[in-house]
Design a protein around this nucleic acid. Structure first.
Lengths: 142, 142
DNA sequence: ATATATTAGTTGACGGGTCAATGATTATCA
DNA sequence: TGATAATCATTGACCCGTCAACTAATATAT
């Protein structure tokens, strides 16, 4: 036991500050929130998905998905319809506009992430990924 | 240019997932939100601070501070009074209860962070801090 | 065949953050 | 001195997430 509280605390603070910094900046740069872009990404890779399938691929709850999709429907990036084979489920798909926007957003994201990782060489990136994965695992133990 | 989009994206996703994981777990384990504990921490190190000073030390805005303090006042961990020398400012201080609780919360936090960093030796922690700092700097460029 | 359970989605209330507008107080300066 | 500006705190409206309650539809089991 070597008494490194300050160092541990520093990491904790940094992780929080980082998250707090990243999301708003991303939204400002890319013109869309990370979550919505992830939704678009999922939708981009299929023709049509049920809302529940979509939701399970994200780490947000069903209510949040409903509200995002409602907003995205109003802004014309997606469409929704009932599944005739099962009236509980609603099927979601990207509009053509949605596909176009998704491509532009992705480009913005690529730029954003490139800037975020400025100065990190390949090996450092690998180390970082490894460490973040380990932190994630440690959290899951709680 | 070596085309490492997936790796870059992975880091971006991991950072977000991590934040989303840490906060709720922390709150469940420690019994208080990270932000409120940081408020308590600031207050712990002084007799009395003006709300504005307190706010500037945190990375949240004045409205959020007002609401947190209001809640903490009701739950008896802090008290507030007007500064007689300047009626715009309100002075905040921890109650005795608040100091006691703060100590307990800190212990929970210590445990939490220790678990979070399980498996990280001293050198790795240093590397991690360095990397997180660099990410933070990169964000600030945007 | 019907009662019961499960599933999908929506809504409302809440916590935690933002921004913008407001009120009250104090500073500034012409 | 008296108008104007700056400062501190609060409030309201919004975004984004949670959970819990509810509806509607389908599955299950007796």
């Amino acid at each position: 036991m070597t008494e490194h509280y300050p160092e541990e605390d520093r990491i904790f603070e940094l992780l929080q500050a980082l998250n707090k910094g990243i999301c708003p900046k991303f939204e400002r740069c890319a013109g869309i929130s990370p979550t919505r872009l992830r939704l678009l990404n999922e939708l981009f890779q299929v023709d049509e998905v049920s809302q529940i399938t979509l939701q399970k691929g994200m780490d947000i709850d069903a209510a949040a998905v409903t509200r995002h999709l409602k907003g995205m429907e109003e802004s014309g990036t997606i469409t929704r319809r009932n599944n005739p084979a099962d009236n509980r489920v609603t099927l979601v798909s990207l509009t053509d506009q949605g596909r176009e926007r998704m491509i532009q957003y992705s480009e913005e994201k690529r730029r954003f992430v490139a800037t975020l990782l400025t100065g990190f060489n390949g090996q450092e990136r690998t180390v970082l990924i490894d460490m973040l994965n380990r932190l994630q695992s440690n959290i899951n133990l709680l």
